[in-house]
Design a protein around this nucleic acid. Structure first.
Lengths: 255, 255
DNA sequence: AATTTAGCATTAAATATTTCATTTCAGAGC
DNA sequence: GCTCTGAAATGAAATATTTAATGCTAAATT
């Protein structure tokens, strides 16, 4: 499932027309600097010019094809990942092959893995949804700056804290709400956080939308149909149009 | 529910025989210093003697009666809380009065509220299960040291990181597993993390155990009975004896 | 153009979980 | 000792959710 290739989606072809960052000096140095996460300011702002250069000189730029696994759950965590372009999913793989998509990472976001400071372990699998261009930055490199640069330490703490709150909100939503509320959450999340338009075309499969909502794809589709029957949304194979956003928000709120 | 008083439990009478820390100089300065969380080293270790004194001089020692609310979800977060003695529950209050107990805090543990650095908001309600003696430490005080003391910043980051992993593990368990697995998790958590003995007597109500396991009390009791019928545990009104721990761990693992 | 394939949609049956109603029980207060 | 009360235990019914089975559709391959 995670390894399925989906080369036929228009969006994917678009994303393969990326500049090759290796060839451009300015781009090479700046791509991570534009990263931000969860509304927190960029962690690299706290670094001195020399520290920044040291990190940028050391980072590796890597491309992934849609469907590829970027990091695998339970493997050692050695690098932070800056997503420069494309879309990735953060997946918690359960015991019985049950996947839960915790988060979708857009371009200009940083993925840190969760237990960076404590246990150096990836608690999630990250997989490319579209083709991806990203940078790998050594955590050991990052940590050498922590003890000499408090501003940077605080920025990093903010980043972690923001990720923590975000993930926590997601998980609490999943636990507290019944299916319609969870589906509403997913639809609103895609509109507001990922595609920022209405209607929006999505590249995710219905299985993935279901994995984001903590249910089977059948259940997800059934709820989607119920929303359509109630005139709250229109949907086709790969697009969603939210017609009565107020109602959807209300459903999300009531769980 | 959260405000129910339970004065009749023996454990509670025991916990009311605390030393009054206000009267003892050594105790006044040291109670938080012994705190540790999630296996991380104590955050106060990173402070200089003067910094530590400054925090300790400023902290407030407060007692709560069993059942009292210590902090309320969605209120402004201004203080860290060091639990000195007693047991508290960290509750996420859902929309329809559905409570989920995220964690149980023992003595010598620190509660930070989650969004400390970012949004200064309590994301949980913390309520006293037994009588509690704790210290309130201003977060603003803490943060003044962050920018001048990197060691302290790293220690604090470790604390947050540890809490993050712990909570994340809890929530993932709740989402990925069916009821028997979740009940098994709760029973093992109480044995290993809270009471550290087998059999153990617990002060929590069955409703609270159910809230820890993300299900109704009826479902929890029914699962408990199933375990008893299978000879995996013995249980009475307020004690649990795990007979076949291997089996319980297996149930927990398979979800 | 025909074939293949992966994902989509829908249904019925099976299972998991909650809700509701009722009874039992143990400790608190008199 | 008796009564009262809130929690614990239990069973039946209602609901939520998953599983399994099937046909459909659109895009990719040949």
């Amino acid at each position: 499932m995670l390894n399925s290739r989906r080369f036929w989606y228009p969006y994917m072809h678009a994303s393969t027309t990326l500049n090759n960052c290796d060839s451009c000096e300015g781009c090479k140095y700046n791509c991570c600097i534009n990263s931000n996460n969860c509304g927190a300011s960029n962690i690299f702002n706290g670094l001195t010019r020399d520290e920044l250069r040291s990190i940028m000189d050391n980072k590796r730029q890597i491309k992934f094809r849609a469907g590829e696994t970027i990091t695998k759950q339970n493997t050692p965590l050695t690098h932070l990942i800056c997503i420069k372009s494309g879309l990735a999913k953060v997946v918690s793989e359960g015991p019985k092959g049950k996947n839960l998509i915790i988060d979708i990472i857009k371009d200009n976001n940083i993925f840190t893995g969760g237990g960076t400071v404590i246990d150096d372990t990836h608690h999630f699998t990250v997989a490319a949804i579209t083709d991806i261009e990203c940078c790998f930055i050594e955590t050991s490199k990052i940590f050498t700056f922590l003890s000499v640069n408090s501003t940077f330490a605080i920025e990093l703490m903010k980043l972690y804290n923001g990720q923590h709150i975000k993930m926590h909100k997601t998980l609490i939503n999943l636990i507290h709400k019944y299916m319609p509320g969870r589906v509403a959450d997913t639809l609103l999340f895609l509109k507001n956080e990922i595609y920022d338009s209405n209607p929006y075309q999505f590249i995710l499969t219905k299985q993935e939308l279901a994995d984001m909502s903590g249910m089977t794809k059948e259940s997800f589709i059934r709820n989607l149909k119920d929303f359509e029957d109630s005139g709250i949304i229109n949907h086709s194979r790969n697009s969603i149009h939210i017609l009565k956003e107020e109602d959807l928000i209300e459903i999300s709120r009531n769980g």
